[in-house]
Design a binder for these strands. Structure first.
Length: 289
DNA sequence: AATCGTTCCAACCGCCACCGG
DNA sequence: CCCGGTGGCGGTTGGAACGAT
């Protein structure tokens, strides 16, 4: 059963490569009406395509901010490092490469980097797995990159934030401090997540773990505490935190546990920032190449 | 020039999370 | 809480382009 497909195969929809005219129609429509409502878009725009196809075409090809041309060496290095941290989270990786799409990075990885790193994935030197034959029955699972064998991969999904730890120097003394049980305390380093959430309204949502560190000495400035399921937490803790905390800093941080959050206040810039940027910047800077 | 094999990438497919009714 | 609609994601595929013979 399951839900119905996004577009009926009975409909006489165009498939395959997009024509220049279709591109033009889609681009003009989105320029006027904006993105979204993909399911209705083809009908409104007069395209014989399914909404999903339109979305993909726009996001991967027609968007004006798409960067053309080959992946640069710097970009490749970044992709490799991000892949070590995130695994096959192509959309997250693409988010760190302006103008590059997840599809492009995925393709680039599968055709170029993956081969370089792993050596030839198939013993016969062919990029593709052997065709299904009597001797080579199709595996039930496609071959996957064994990221765990060589590195720890950060799980970037988190549950709800419950409290935030802020060191004294980062606090505004006028702020009311409330712990996760809504107990008010002027000395408590905990602020309610509602207070944080009030501040983050309007900021792009992102899901990720968080451990914020001071740039100069790599010690933690504050932490956030989450309700995370045990699997996530244990997986998350499998990240080499000891290594992360100790990188170039024998003194260690004030916080000895790892937590996760959607967005956090950046006390250096006195604004709220998406965690993913903060966290990935730090991870990229502090994990082994 | 013709054929065959390989590479690359745009597009498709199925699944899942999220959200609103 | 449940359910259906929607958007987004990652894996896979098809075919065009290219190179080798």
């Amino acid at each position: 059963m399951g839900r119905s497909p996004c577009c009926s195969k009975d409909e006489a929809l165009n498939r395959g490569a997009w024509t220049g005219m279709e591109d033009k129609i889609l681009t003009e429509y989105i320029t006027v009406h904006g993105e979204g409502k993909w399911r209705n878009l083809p009908k409104r725009a007069g395209l014989k395509r399914c909404g999903k196809s339109c979305r993909l075409r726009w996001l991967n090809y027609l968007r004006p901010d798409i960067k053309r041309g080959n992946i640069t060496r710097d970009e490749e290095e970044l992709i490799i490092r991000l892949h070590k941290l995130l695994g096959n989270r192509w959309s997250l990786i693409a988010g760190r490469l302006p103008g590059r799409t997840d599809n492009e990075i995925k393709n680039y990885w599968n055709t170029t980097i993956g081969k370089k790193i792993q050596g030839h994935p198939f013993s016969d030197g062919n990029r593709k797995p052997p065709k299904q034959t009597q001797e080579n029955p199709k595996p039930t699972q496609p071959p996957k990159v064994d990221t765990d064998s060589c590195t720890k991969v950060v799980r970037t999904k988190a549950s709800r934030c419950t409290k935030v730890f802020i060191p004294q120097e980062a606090q505004n003394p006028d702020d009311q401090i409330v712990d996760d049980n809504d107990h008010v305390s002027n000395n408590s380093p905990l602020v309610s997540v509602d207070q944080v959430n009030d501040q983050v309204a309007g900021i792009e949502e992102s899901l990720s773990p968080i451990f914020l560190l001071d740039d100069e000495n790599s010690s933690c400035k504050f932490m956030v505490d989450f309700k995370v399921d045990e699997n996530f937490l244990s997986d998350f803790l499998n990240v080499d935190f000891s290594e992360l905390y100790n990188n170039g800093n024998d003194e260690g941080g004030e916080v000895a546990s790892a937590t996760a959050c959607d967005k956090v206040p950046d006390f250096r810039s006195s604004s709220m920032v998406p965690v993913i940027d903060y966290e990935l910047d730090w991870l990229i800077d502090n994990t082994a190449h």
